[in-house]
């Protein structure tokens, strides 16, 4: 797992209060990890804060799984 993936996972565990082993690449925030629409808004904010980037609303709407978030951040952060 990449560094970005580890950091994403940590944020998801913290914000959604889920077990770390449930946070797999294919896990959907809403369907598998118990998030509601407000949780996903907050998650995106936490990613922005952690990675110092901006995730526009239209991009945020495509981030549905842990893997989606990792992919987006790998593409859009200097790290």
């Amino acid at each position: 797992m990449s560094d970005i993936s580890e950091r994403v996972k940590k944020i998801v565990v913290e914000h959604l209060g889920v077990e770390a082993d449930k946070v797999t690449e294919n896990a959907s925030f809403i369907d598998d990890l118990g998030a509601d629409s407000l949780d996903t808004v907050e998650l995106v904010m936490a990613f922005e804060e952690e990675f110092g980037c901006e995730i526009p609303d239209d991009a945020a709407e495509t981030i549905l799984t842990v893997g989606d978030a990792v992919k987006f951040l790998e593409k859009n952060t200097a790290a």
Binding site: L38, E42, M45, E48, E54
Partner: peptide, 10 residues
């Protein structure tokens, strides 16, 4: 404003 939590109001 982008850092205001969606849980701020509720």
């Amino acid at each position: 404003p982008r850092r205001v939590s969606p849980f701020f109001i509720p």
